[in-house]
Design a protein around this nucleic acid. Structure first.
Length: 922
RNA sequence: GGGCCCAUAGCUCAGUGGUAGAGUGCCUCCUUUGCAAGGAGGAUGCCCAGGGUUCGAAUCCCUGUGGGUCCA
């Protein structure tokens, strides 16, 4: 085993008289120019020494500090790159949010598959980290939203030649540390006070030496030298317990926290005051937070110690705070009362910036993915705002940040915030009612509300336990909130992980050359000639590999082509086509013979329909964006022959008017008959020119990507398309449905399928019109009239039955005497409703009623007993129903029942008087 | 993507296999009146849809639809 110690012995340190030391407090190794230094410089070993005493020559705003950084590195031969969206899932599917600048270049650039947009480069990348959410506002230094300023260099070992998308070394450790040092100097920092702490970095299967850069108690930068990958036989064992070995590429990955640097330059009590001065002033004023000079002074001194407030490290907030109070010689409660509103205000400012980033970059609130995260942040922010007593609308607060960040879609952002706020309010109202009900229930029982109910309320209804507590307090009911509440909730979600289905690798397949794809050359051609390179026998049919093909393999939501392969010996049918590692497999019914020349014929009808639907998909997406807004983005798509579906992100249900408008816009584009352009630009050029909206259908690998342009809509797309939009013929939107919160599915048909679909719906209408015997246009009115009349008649029938029943009861029926009470036993052969009404009417006249019916093929009984007569109706019904092979029951004064043997009904009724007497006697 | 919850009068909801209910709102009348209100009577309903179990389903089971919520 070898440690990384030697990795840190840099020439730069040597030449500049640095000394390697071990921190007397925490034991970490670090490098410093100050030979008397004993501690590493990082809290808790050292305190902040820049509060009220800025560490740089000049005070900078966030904007100024960003510019200082970027221009410093530009002057040092780095290319400045525009930031990427905070929604990292737009270009990679393994993470949701951008948490570091290096995320922009994973996985394709770091693996060496794709060249970086520039090398070396510098950037200031907005990031969101939800992990520290509980620290935000409290520690004075944690933020959920931040910008990571960075410079990156992508290197490949000399000996691997041009195997990767970049070659050779740009620069490595010495230069990186030197840049850092020089940047500090350029800002007028006292370089004697900087410490470089050795802190190896491990993450996501990669690792390498790394250095934390500490200045005046604050961690201002991390310099990571990504150079190793996980390898069971590797020579290095790192802190995660895994073994690592060097990789062919090695990458300089730095991170300079813009907020920290800004803070350092200003020396304000907290980072928040340095980065959001205007918003904090506004919130303080709005919430009526006003401090005396002494209070201000106390807050100031507490801030210096607040670094200890990290809920991951501190035992708990309470003790951390009393500890600080003790050291300041202040009353813990007073200090808490003073700090709490400030902490909320800091958090609100930070959260609003997070929301502005999220919605500004096109995230739509939802119950899944990034949308869910945005919903959580928004709700949390709303609670904070209410808690601290800020009465400005949330959409305005978010807009303050969106404006500062320069977003252009501010109206949409505000609209999203308002919609989401309304949904939250509705949830709270619903929840509140539910909790009140529950509280009353348990108040009556005199029991506390059990944990089980709390979990149910939270998990199924989104009600926080403290809200339950609040309402329960009003009703004087106890609540049991266990400490491990959230893990109890998590336990409810424990489901066995499904095993990943591993695709088996075929040795023979990997030896074959990539199939030449003819379908991109001429998307209209359907015939071609090819040589059969190999044939794989499968469980059902054969997989045929050709040297070139016109057949489009399933991909990008477009189903595979069908058709035939013919040779002199005959013809085989192609039923499916798939692409594996560049090799296209044609699934056929028979073996065409390895080495044969074949003529391929693609099923033209199917292909044409698929092309029409595919191009139509792009058009519908474009139209939806035109009509609904720029936040509309593809969330999935599936093309078909008869219909296609296209899922779009949107924060409300689409209205019928919007759908009609989308249809109009889409068909206008069809009528305009504009050409559909295909091109293969360099991916970095395309990205720079069009942004990440290119990748709505997924991220293709490679240095070149294929772009499809229809009007102003440009998409990275591997599918086949018609030549001009007019070739689509027509687009008909069939339905829209919500797939999940924040995502609407638009189902549509294109070309002939659109005509067929329209005819089909029209036929439904005609059929309905025929049944009603009216013209199609009269169907709605007639249907409504019929429905109303139908309801009226139902009521009329009820009334008539009631009258009939009363008339029947009044009519002279044969009465028998049961212990002094008159009883009527009668067969009526009507439905149960009528039996019931008659029996009730008879009993109101003081008679026992035993009524039977054979209507509907089974025997039915209703027995009714007047008040004060000692006969149990339920027992009578039970006896009688038993005789017809069934059962029954009901309350003592009224019961019903029956059985399947209608033939025995009369017999049973004959027995009824006897049964009544028996039950009376009993 | 997965788990859970919900769907009954215009609204908020009760109803766990046996005659569909309450509160509120609505309509009519009365009382009172500056307003608010008070009293009496009345109408509310494909109990989300489809299938199944049962003599019998708002109720139990399955499928679907719509809404909510938690988690990754």
């Amino acid at each position: 085993m070898s440690s990384l110690e030697s990795e840190y012995r840099l020439d730069y340190f040597e030449e500049n008289d640095f000394e390697r030391k071990e921190c007397v407090s925490c034991g970490a190794h670090f490098w410093t120019r100050d030979h008397d230094r004993e501690t590493c410089g990082e809290p808790p070993c050292d305190e902040y020494s820049f509060i009220g005493d800025p560490g740089f020559a000049e005070s900078h705003t966030m904007e100024e500090m960003r510019e200082e950084f970027l221009s410093f590195f530009e002057e040092n031969d780095h290319t400045r790159i525009d930031p990427y969206p905070v929604a990292a899932n737009r270009w990679r599917d393994d993470v949701l949010l951008t948490q570091a600048s290096i995320y922009d270049f994973q996985p394709l650039v770091t693996s060496g598959e794709t060249p970086p947009p520039a090398n070396p480069l510098c950037i200031s990348q907005p990031c969101i980290r939800m992990q520290d959410i509980d620290n935000v506002g409290k520690t004075g230094r944690h933020t959920m939203a931040f910008e990571m300023m960075a410079h990156h260099a992508f290197n490949a070992r000399e000996e691997v030649g041009d195997e990767y998308a970049y070659e050779g070394e740009v620069y490595w450790k010495d230069e990186t540390v030197q840049y850092c040092d020089e940047f500090f100097e350029s800002l007028g920092a006292n370089v004697e006070e900087i410490t470089y702490i050795e802190d190896p970095w491990v993450g996501g299967g990669n690792a390498g030496p790394a250095i934390e850069v500490i200045y005046k108690g604050a961690e201002l930068a991390t310099l990571v030298f990504m150079s190793m990958e996980q390898d069971p036989d590797g020579e290095y064992e790192l802190k995660d317990g895994n073994r690592y070995s060097p990789m062919d590429t090695y990458i300089v990955d730095t991170g300079y926290g813009l907020e920290r640097w800004t803070w350092m330059s200003q020396g304000t009590p907290t980072v928040y005051e340095a980065v959001y001065p205007d918003m904090i002033a506004f919130l303080k004023e709005n919430a009526g937070v006003d401090h005396t000079d002494e209070e201000e002074e106390l807050v100031h001194r507490a801030a210096k110690l607040a670094g200890a407030m990290d809920i991951d490290e501190a035992e708990d907030m309470q003790t951390a705070r009393s500890d600080i109070a003790g050291r300041l010689d202040a009353d813990p409660e007073e200090l808490t009362a003073l700090m709490r509103p400030l902490e909320d205000i800091y958090a609100i400012a930070d959260h609003c910036r997070t929301l502005a980033y999220m919605f500004g970059d096109g995230i739509v609130p939802s119950n899944v993915g990034t949308g869910y995260l945005s919903r959580m942040v928004l709700r949390r922010t709303k609670r904070l705002v209410d808690n601290v007593g800020v009465d400005a609308p949330l959409d305005e607060l978010v807009d303050m940040q969106a404006k500062r960040l320069g977003y252009e879609n501010r109206d949409t952002i505000r609209d999203i915030v308002r919609t989401e706020e309304r949904k939250y309010r509705e949830t709270l109202e619903r929840g509140g009612r539910r909790v009140r009900q529950l509280a009353e229930e348990f108040a009556e029982k005199g029991e506390p509300i059990p944990t089980k109910e709390l979990i149910e309320l939270y998990d199924s209804h989104g009600i926080q336990p403290d809200m339950v507590q609040e309402i329960a307090d009003e009703r004087d009911v106890d609540v049991e909130i266990p400490d491990d509440f959230y893990s109890l909730v998590a336990a409810r979600h424990d489901t066995p992980q499904q095993a990943e289905t591993t695709t088996e690798r075929d040795e023979r397949l990997s030896d074959l050359p990539e199939t030449e794809r003819l379908y991109y050359d001429d998307q209209e051609r359907t015939e071609f000639e090819a040589v059969v390179l190999d044939v794989f026998e499968r469980e059902e049919g054969y997989d045929v590999v050709l040297d070139q093909t016109m057949f489009y393999p399933e991909g990008g939501g477009q189903p595979a082509d069908h058709g035939h392969l013919s040779s002199e010996d005959g013809s085989v049918e192609v039923t499916d086509v798939q692409r594996r590692d560049g090799v296209i497999l044609h699934r056929t019914t028979d073996d065409p013979g390895k080495g044969e020349f074949v003529r391929g014929q693609v099923d033209i009808e199917r292909r044409r329909s698929l092309m029409q639907h595919h191009t139509a998909t792009h058009i519908v997406g474009y139209a939806a964006r035109e009509v609904v807004g720029d936040h509309v983005r593809q969330a999935g798509a599936q093309k078909g022959v008869e219909r296609s579906r296209f899922d779009v992100t949107h924060y409300e249900r689409l209205t019928r008017e919007q759908v009609e408008e989308i249809e109009r816009v889409a068909n206008r584009l069809v009528r305009d008959n504009i050409p559909v352009k295909q091109e293969w630009p360099d991916r970095n050029d395309a990205q720079e020119k069009y942004g990440f909206d290119l990748y709505q259908g997924g991220i293709p690998p490679g240095e070149q990507i294929r772009l499809i342009q229809v009007a102003d809509d440009i998409q990275a797309c591997g599918g086949t398309h018609v030549r001009r939009t007019g070739d689509i013929g027509a687009i008909k939107i069939l339905t829209t449905e919500p797939v999940q919160d924040g995502v609407e599915r638009i189902v549509f048909a294109a070309g002939d399928a659109a005509i067929r679909a329209t005819q089909e719906t029209e036929n439904h209408l005609r059929d309905a019109a025929e049944v009603l015997d009216v013209n199609p246009e009269d169907v709605p009115d007639t249907a409504e009239r019929f429905f109303t009349e139908w309801k009226e008649r139902g009521k009329q029938i009820d009334r008539l039955k009631q009258e009939l029943a009363e008339a029947r009861a009044a009519a002279d029926a044969e009465e028998i005497d049961i212990g002094g009470t008159p009883a009527v036993v009668q067969r009526l052969d009507t439905d149960t409703d009528e039996l019931r009404a008659t029996a009730t009417a008879l009993s109101e006249d003081g008679k026992v009623a035993v009524l039977g019916s054979g209507a509907g093929g089974s025997a039915q009984f209703v027995v009714s007993v007047p008040d004060g007569v000692g006969i149990n109706a339920g027992e009578v019904v039970g006896e009688l129903a038993g005789m017809v092979g069934g059962g029954g029951g009901g309350p003592a004064d009224f019961a019903q029942g029956g059985g399947p043997n209608a033939d025995d009904l009369d017999e049973a009724l004959d027995e009824a008087p006897g049964v009544l007497r028996n039950v009376l006697n009993a």
